[in-house]
Design a protein around this nucleic acid. Sequence first.
DNA 1: TTGTACGCGTTATCAC
DNA 2: GTGATAACGCGTACAA
Lengths: 332, 332
Amino acid sequence: MGIYKERVTIYEVAKNAGVSLATVSRVINNQSNVTPETKRRVEETIARLGYKPNALAQGLATNRTTNIGIVIPDVNYVHISNLLSGMIDIGKIYGYQTTLFVTKHSKQDTEDVIAKLVTSHVDGAIVFDDELLSSHIDTIINYKIPLILIGGKFDIFEEKVGTISLNYTGALKNVITRRIESDDYKISFLHSTNEGKMIQTIESALVKDLDESHFDTIVVSDSYHETYYQFVDYFKKNKKGFFVCPRDSLACAISNAALDKGLRVPEDVEVLSVIGTKYSLVSRPTISSCELDMYEVGSIAMRMITKLLKEELKEKTYNFDAVFNSRASTKE
Amino acid sequence: MGIYKERVTIYEVAKNAGVSLATVSRVINNQSNVTPETKRRVEETIARLGYKPNALAQGLATNRTTNIGIVIPDVNYVHISNLLSGMIDIGKIYGYQTTLFVTKHSKQDTEDVIAKLVTSHVDGAIVFDDELLSSHIDTIINYKIPLILIGGKFDIFEEKVGTISLNYTGALKNVITRRIESDDYKISFLHSTNEGKMIQTIESALVKDLDESHFDTIVVSDSYHETYYQFVDYFKKNKKGFFVCPRDSLACAISNAALDKGLRVPEDVEVLSVIGTKYSLVSRPTISSCELDMYEVGSIAMRMITKLLKEELKEKTYNFDAVFNSRASTKE
DNA sequence: TTGTACGCGTTATCAC
DNA sequence: GTGATAACGCGTACAA
């Protein structure tokens, strides 16, 4: 059954070159015990027949696939494609392919996704998906898949697990508390669908010491468009506000809605974003936001997993602190 | 050698359930000839032992991997992550995993990337990478990998190849020619590094009938930042211009540079973009650009490849026409 | 240096 | 309905 493919196998190469399988295999894997002459002959026939090894068979025989599984909730966010980009670049250097396991914010099929990760026999996995439950993580660990976790705080100390903590709270803490003390109107925290635990944790940390009268909560969708129109409506009645958004494109939605309703940013409406990307810079006024070089996070993650695979990972924990860049969308 | 893994195999499941391999395999693959009782017993032991099939071995035996290879020049563009997102969503529905093959605008290792695609034994491939040479495409076809090509125009009519043409020229043609007739200053086409053949083809089509005195060319990097600063400098001397950009974030760079140098958009400086994404909407003024729903393109591509794999693809060619959305960054 | 033979985990074709 | 057994393509001890 299956799809028809007439691939040249190592066996045919051997026959054509007048040697045995083993010798061809040795040539492929650059092993030393081969006469230059036979090596040349084998390489010539490989080129002539257009032979390419079958990675499945190799993986089955060696128990290595040179494949890294990447678990993310979505590819369609700028900070995530930045991250992915860093992983891919570094993975390429070390000869690793990347297979995507996207959970799409769906708790339903997350287990299926993890199951596929396990069956796919990747050499290791990198998880940037704070919507995963710890039971999912445990599954990965139980199957002894070397793992790098990227996210908030971690208290995991497994043999084959490295962690990268992204800390946004520190950068925001000062701004928010100064804001509380200096003014009278409330801080509004935007809650979007799909936002994950990290944003929630950040917000909890920020409002922990605050009186409830100082802040409130606005639920928005995860879409620029919908949020924009929601706030066009909002600003028909409300003429002021200080908004903390999970992502900067939502902050742009608010800022643009305010401007388009004739309000001034930041004089009337102030906006800032937790996760800052290129949108913060492209927007006019520019958006105050916390920045973290996600490309670098991705690079580091991929580097960590390669070291982990060689049992050479010394520092199993990495911390990244976001920096808050005060821009034109806030008064200070 | 290789990484240590102690995975449960089908053999151990068989032993524990008191049946043979064959029966376990039948249960896994939902085949009918199994007594409900034994089926239950096998499933119970599978759950108890935490058995997960080895996709490598399955792939080797069936010659199918449920993996689709995706060849792109980069993940770090919004229109590409849109595309990818569509592919992934639909792939998920059909049970396909996606493995990324990113060429990173590097002609050097593109051959290596294609080689990896071949060795990885994906069931099919989707290519959105107009920096690939036709020799690379031929390689994929020669290895009989079912293929969907996304890009400009195609004249490929292979058995196992579907194509999706993205047409931007039609949408731009009118705007550009009207612009030529109505005004006296030149149109400047931005050439960025990494832009690929498509943009070049579009530009060629646009300027084909034009006198050279009507347009010129400005070389920019592929980065928002660098382009922004380049044009901040540019606008110290030049106070006017009509700029056609390959991507909208570069258009934003010009628009923002103009605004920040005290010029007016679109009164003094007009900007439009070929490929339009969310940046066109977020930017103020909004950017006139050609839009194409890349998420849908990705969905269609994935749907096409699944049909191709089932030999059910009737329409092997698809055309998408971009629409030009005139916005605030141009006068009309 | 080179070849033989077995194992990797699964599916599939036979028998029974 | 179920169980041996031969593929699938490759790596690798071991023998020669």
